[in-house]
């Protein structure tokens, strides 16, 4: 109560669209309430506009716990019910290793290395873009 507010103030994660694809970028510390708000916002957008794909870029996310894992899985399953496909892009190797040990397999979530590949998978032809500048390599961690 008298505790000062610390860290960034909770704000909304933007949900920009690229044609019929929503392109969401998650970064840094995501409060639980923001994740739940995002889930609602995405579902609403799909219900109210012609969305066929959802790309969630998690390359800036440094942990995925069972809460965020569940939110991501629920976004994907509700999107699927509304005929939109969800692709998770750019999971960091350390996050992937941890998720396996935690016991979360995120069934039904399509994952790719980066946003470019996510868009490819959803049928956007953006292959004329310059190559991705930096890609985490598993060997970096050993």
């Amino acid at each position: 109560m008298t505790e000062p507010r610390r860290g960034a103030h909770a704000s909304r994660v933007p949900v920009p669209a690229l044609g019929e694809t929503l392109l969401i970028t998650l970064q840094g510390e995501l409060h639980d309430s923001m994740a739940e708000q995002l889930q609602q916002d995405i579902t609403r957008r799909i219900a109210h506009s012609p969305v066929t794909g959802v790309v969630i870029d998690i390359s800036g996310v440094d942990i995925v716990d069972s809460f965020l894992g569940r939110v991501l899985a629920e976004i994907a399953s509700s999107a699927r019910l509304m005929a939109a496909r969800t692709v998770l892009a750019g999971m960091r190797p350390a996050v992937a290793i941890t998720l396996v040990e935690l016991g979360l397999t995120l069934p039904g979530l399509d994952t790719v290395l980066d946003v470019e590949r996510a868009l490819d998978r959803l049928g956007h032809g953006l292959s004329t873009d310059p190559p991705h500048p930096r890609r985490a390599h598993h060997a970096d961690l050993l």
């Binding site: 440094d62 942990i63 995925v64 716990d65 069972s66 809460f67 960091r92 190797p93 350390a94 996050v95 290793i97 941890t98 040990e101 935690l102 961690l141």
Partner: peptide, 12 residues
């Protein structure tokens, strides 16, 4: 990787 594992456990 150790940091990520520990912080994830802590979050849970």
């Amino acid at each position: 990787v150790q940091q990520t594992k520990l912080v994830t456990a802590v979050s849970e």
